[in-house]
Design a protein around this nucleic acid. Structure first.
Lengths: 252, 252
DNA sequence: CGCACAATTGAAAGTTATCAAACGTTGTGG
DNA sequence: CCACAACGTTTGATAACTTTCAATTGTGCG
């Protein structure tokens, strides 16, 4: 149950931002992912301050949340769905720098410009904070800044692991590391599952792992043959042999 | 002029840490890189608090500052020299995740364990802060935490750029991006120079760029032939054609 | 001066990319 | 409800960039 579902008046006008995403301004008190989000560290009172500046937005599949070159106006916290972050080269080559799921935030900027673009992989919801007003709140709420630091540090550690993957791992190791990562995250939130949603395309996976679509596809087929994973239906992976998956991920 | 040079009594006992690095406990007031360091944002009074917990350490070329698996006891701020950060795979493959110069910090941890190893590329000096006591100071000095957040965010942006490099650029583009990055940094600190020190080995460069030593060497030779750079002596690059270097870095 | 190590250069091999085609899936419209 | 178009995925054959293996040259240090 998310904040949007608590709207009482269905006739309330639907607001949209400049690129057509739905926006709702409502409090955070019913947030489904509060304990994993930016606001996790806040007291009730502080939460009220934060919810005064937050907007809940809905983003359709394939819609853009932010654009690499844009002025960095907002910080986002994904509450539902999934998002891909990516950078583009002049000739169109693309590197996906991360896939985001509920609890993750986006909107890191350098010199008030976003460092990457972001696009929804599926119907997605997010909290949106204006960076400017956020700055003020950060000064009032050291806990919030502390939490943000811890989240960014975490991101940095993941980024460094991804560098190892991109620079030194083989195609098979890359795929296994990727699937293991998705699986571990999934199990953390929903213990006991072996089934993992795969909301991104093969091409997205390739652009995340520094491979082509074809190599991703071929390698997935191999992993299937080896009994590491199964693909019961499009957009779902089952981890059949986690032990093996982990070993292959590290090249053991 | 660094803090160590202000020691008045040469007969004072030299302290060393568990792996033999020299340690000196002295205040920060004469710091040569204060404006680019962690403590940049602090007032005189706050600086005093920080300098109470800081130690100045000297690390010999090739010596280890931190070990990936170690308990994360300290945060460091490089004041002189240079450092490489790296991660290792079980079979010895290595990914260098960053080269650090005066002003840069290291010591990011996940679950109180360092996320990477760090080794001095040359004779290096650094401020060392105990993380534990730092935590307390962070609570007292929101400015310090703010500064830390800004530095970590900056690191994250660089890491994402490096992912693009590792995942999508050719050997030549990688080398050019790397040299351009070093050059830009150098010029920022010492305007008007075209000469850039290269304290790392070809093998280090390879492990940073996801290439082998041989490919780095070959590509450097090509860039020399093309008149992009010159190698007047070991450990020095001259940027001859910056425009071209920039274009080649982006694959234009 | 000579040894040890780093860097360069060469030839051959290999992993992954590129080009191409077939196959599946999804969604739309007749 | 089916047909078909559009798009994503898989599979195949070939090519290319980078790696690997090997030898030579260069540099720093005892």
């Amino acid at each position: 149950m998310d904040t949007l579902a608590r709207k009482k008046d269905p006739s309330a006008p639907v607001k949209r931002d400049h690129i057509g995403n739905r926006i709702d301004f409502s409090p955070c008190s019913g947030c489904n992912i509060h304990e994993m989000a930016l606001c996790q560290a806040l007291s009730c009172h502080e939460l009220k301050g934060l919810s005064a500046i937050v907007a809940n937005i809905e983003v359709a599949k394939g819609a853009t949340l932010i654009n690499e070159t844009d002025q960095a106006e907002f910080l986002f916290n994904v509450t539902q769905g999934s998002v891909k972050l990516y950078k583009l080269m002049p000739d169109g080559r693309r590197q996906i720098t991360g896939f985001l799921f509920p609890g993750d935030f986006l909107g890191i900027a350098l010199n008030d410009r976003y460092a990457y673009s972001a696009e929804a992989l599926e119907a997605t919801k997010a909290c949106r904070f204006p960076r400017k007003e956020m700055e003020g709140l950060l000064r009032e709420m050291p806990e919030l800044e502390h939490r943000l630091l811890s989240m960014v540090s975490n991101e940095l550690v993941l980024a460094q692991e991804q560098m190892l993957l991109l620079g030194r791992k083989t195609a098979q190791e890359k795929l296994c590391s990727f699937l293991k990562g998705l699986y571990d995250r999934r199990v953390k939130r929903f213990p006991g599952t072996s089934s993992v949603p795969l909301p991104m395309s093969r091409s997205d996976m390739g652009d995340f792992l520094g491979l082509t679509t074809e190599t991703v596809s071929r390698t997935m087929t191999n992993l299937k043959k080896k009994g590491v994973v199964a693909l019961p239906s499009k957009g779902i992976v089952n981890v059949v042999n986690y032990e093996l998956l982990s070993d292959l991920a590290e090249g053991v």
